[in-house]
């Protein structure tokens, strides 16, 4: 029981990374209606972009920005030159899921071919440890949590206080009506891919800072909790994704402390199933229901 509070603290670190990733993932879906299962692999590609910068002598936090920029540009180009072609041809949600799985495999194997099947680490210190009650955080973990908070606030401000954010929400709710109302939905979708791609990049680098080492499959292994967080919160609902990330992240660590590490994922997903049984649309979703009707 005395491990419960430290476990809660560790859960916050996992939840921070998960929140950044899940918000990016769900933002893509809400604005573009594409459930991008290549998201985890794009995280890995971003981690590699940051790795190249880091090993060229760039500080890890600048490298994180490199990863975010790479993610933004890569995601936007991926949508423009791959996904959008299928959307234009009227490919339905399920068909698009298959396309994203194909992209996922292509990215993973390209990374394998380029970087070879081995493991990589950043040159970065975790910094000193700080005790907050019985919770322990390194400077690097505190930085990750800080980045998560800033990213969530920025997403909130973007969606609620800017014209672009309002246009994104309008496009998410009803793209046809948004277009009829004079919103340049194609540009809004580009912007959504840029923003979500940047979040994807930040999450990829933060994940690797946490795991200390990575390979071409690291991001893909993290995709299931990302989807779980997004679905738990209500797919397409950024605030729901934040809440879902907190729930999944903390539940896993607390379960590991109270029951057994073997049940870490099990407990998190039992919570997911129970919540979805009670509230099938997720904790906060309105958009998801609207999307289902549209599909």
């Amino acid at each position: 029981m005395d491990q419960l509070i430290p476990a809660f603290g560790f859960g916050l670190i996992t939840a921070s990374i998960l929140a950044i990733a899940a918000v990016g993932f769900t933002l893509q879906f809400s604005v573009t209606n594409i459930l991008n299962l290549a998201y985890g692999d794009i995280m890995t590609a971003c981690a590699f972009a940051a790795y190249l910068a880091n090993h060229a002598g760039v500080n890890i936090w600048i490298s994180l920005i490199v990863g975010a920029l790479f993610g933004a540009v890569f995601s936007m180009l991926l949508n423009r030159f791959v996904y959008f072609g299928f959307v234009r041809r009227g490919t339905r949600l399920f068909g698009m899921i298959i396309v994203t799985i194909a992209v996922s495999l292509i990215i993973q194997n390209l990374l394998l071919a380029i970087f070879r099947p081995t493991f990589f680490s950043y040159t970065a210190s975790q910094g000193p440890s700080y005790h907050v009650g019985s919770m322990v955080f390194t400077a690097s973990q505190l930085a990750i949590m800080g980045i998560a908070v800033v990213a969530m606030v920025c997403v909130h401000l973007l969606l609620t206080q800017t014209q672009l954010g309002k246009a994104m929400r309008a496009t998410a709710t009803n793209p046809g009506l948004a277009r009829s109302s004079g919103i340049a939905t194609d540009q809004v979708i580009d912007a959504a891919w840029l923003v979500s791609g940047a979040l994807c990049g930040i999450a990829g680098v933060a994940l690797v800072l946490n795991t200390a080492t990575f390979s071409e499959t690291t991001g893909a292994a993290f995709l299931v909790p990302i989807i779980a967080a997004a679905v738990l919160g209500g797919i397409g609902q950024p605030y729901g994704a934040m809440l879902g990330a907190l729930t999944i992240g903390i539940a896993g660590e607390v379960a590991a402390a109270l029951i057994s590490p073997s049940y870490k994922d099990v407990v998190a997903f039992v919570i997911l199933i129970v919540v979805l049984l009670v509230r099938p649309q997720g904790i906060l979703s309105e958009i998801a229901a609207a999307k289902e009707v549209a599909a």
Partner: peptide, 15 residues
């Protein structure tokens, strides 16, 4: 018994 490829094992390490 560790679940493979998790992002954090801090709770296990604490135990």
């Amino acid at each position: 018994t560790l679940t493979l490829d998790q992002s954090s094992y801090r709770t296990e390490v604490t135990a």
